[in-house]
Design a protein around this nucleic acid. Sequence first.
DNA 1: TTTTATTTACGAATGATTTCGTAGCAAATA
DNA 2: TATTTGCTACGAAATCATTCGTAAATAAAA
Lengths: 130, 130
Amino acid sequence: MENIPSIKPTESELEILQILWQLGKATVRQINDELSKMKVVGYTTTLKLLQIMHEKHIVSRTEEGRYHLYQAEIGEQQTQQLLLGKFVDATFRGSAMKLVMQALGNQEVSLDELDEIKKFIAEKEKNLGN
Amino acid sequence: MENIPSIKPTESELEILQILWQLGKATVRQINDELSKMKVVGYTTTLKLLQIMHEKHIVSRTEEGRYHLYQAEIGEQQTQQLLLGKFVDATFRGSAMKLVMQALGNQEVSLDELDEIKKFIAEKEKNLGN
DNA sequence: TTTTATTTACGAATGATTTCGTAGCAAATA
DNA sequence: TATTTGCTACGAAATCATTCGTAAATAAAA
């Protein structure tokens, strides 16, 4: 899972990646079961997506007897970073601050989480202020 | 520009919306000129997109003599809000805090902006702490 | 052993988005 | 007036993402 992603995974691919990031390795059956908790999806649809993702080197797989075990080949943080950058550009014209303010203003963030963010900012200011 | 958006604008539509949010009203020509600063795009491509957006009531238009003046029908903040919510769900499994931390950690945010965010958090804590 | 179930592979249909060529007008220019 | 330019409308091609049906192989169950 070393590869730095350069192209955006599609929405469906991202759903599968989320599952793989949680499970580590998983069979098509497991992944499809997880997906089925969220939406109606046929087994071969999931399979096909995994095959496409394999072609694109987004996932790797190992043969385990009769079935395949799939695994994410791109990291969670790195992918989030890539997507976040593109999202900030497209939606907030590149202003990460505007995004943060919107997120703090309107998304669910608890008091504890706000504290954590404050600490994080303090750390960052210390480093920036060298 | 009162409408609350409920469906995601596509990427191309969002590019056009960004321009309209900046210019207010604009002709196809103006919009296409702006787009051309960022990428290669044919005039009729831009025109077609605006016609589609008009059908979807994402933009309105008024005839001004021979040409049309287009205007965004969905608000900037409201659209950002909608997209941000979906993005947090898809990319950060619903955790707005994780998104904020990533954004602060790796996107470009200046010291002044960090201060502004700190003030914003302080305000918010005051309100939450009632 | 025969049948059923589960798996992979793959082609193709569907649907959405983007791009562009052409046509028809009307205005501006020669 | 005749020609060129610039605009809208629209169909259709191209591209991309998603979904699904079918076939082949093999394992599991009857």
